[in-house]
Design a protein around this nucleic acid. Structure first.
Length: 191
DNA sequence: GAAAGGATCCGCT
DNA sequence: GCGGATCCTTTCA
């Protein structure tokens, strides 16, 4: 098991951090697994919550790097992000479930492992994350995030579910993973 | 004060 | 493949 990531890991350009998170291990209170899908957002990006500056909801995005930004979407689901440099964050979209399988299955209604964490809302539900956890530090419990070990083939493509900035290819996935929220429509190897 | 719409998921057709 | 659920943040008058 490699060392836990420190806040300085996140104090870099958001796209570089996003690439490095593919293959990293994310645990929240003992439940989680390998990160296989993320998306990057930055303040110059019309799809980003930070595009129009700080608001009560997104204030954590403008705080120090290495904290969790959690928000509610469509009145029902929660999404987990990692804050990088000011106004930048990475949406964690899918995990390969590895730890705490029993509790994650229970939270997700007994669904199959492929469906436990294959989407941002599902992942937050499986890990038990909600608005109470907005702003928590990522380098201390209940978070435990360790760096990827070895090489991971990364594919890139357009982000999912957005209407503005839809062409920006800031979705990063572990190529060929069975645990993605959706397959990469057109596999583009990362360069 | 009002209205629009969203970084989603699930069930039904 | 499509639409409803569900709510609250943000924007605009």
């Amino acid at each position: 098991m490699s060392a836990l990531l420190e806040k300085s890991f996140f104090d870099r350009p958001v796209v570089a951090v996003a690439r490095d998170l593919i293959g990293a291990n994310l645990l929240f209170a003992g439940a989680g697994g390998r990160i296989v899908e993320v998306e990057a957002y930055d303040p110059t990006d019309p799809a980003s919550h930070s595009f129009r500056g700080p608001t009560p909801r997104n204030r954590v995005m403008f705080g120090p790097p290495g904290h969790a930004y959690v928000y509610k979407i469509y009145g029902i689901h929660y999404c987990l992000n990692f804050v990088c440099q000011p106004g930048s964050a990475i949406l964690i979209r899918a995990l390969e479930p590895l730890e705490g399988l029993d509790i994650m299955r229970a939270r997700r209604g007994g669904l199959a492992d492929r469906q436990l964490c294959s989407g941002p809302g599902k992942l937050a539900q499986a890990l038990g994350i909600d608005l109470e956890h907005d702003g928590l530090a990522l380098d201390a419990p209940p978070f435990a995030i360790s760096a990827a070990e070895g090489a991971h083939p990364i594919a890139t493509g357009p982000r999912i579910g957005i209407t503005k900035g839809a062409e920006t290819p800031w979705r990063f996935v572990l190529a060929g993973s069975r645990f993605l929220s959706r397959p990469m429509a057109k596999v583009q190897p990362d360069l």
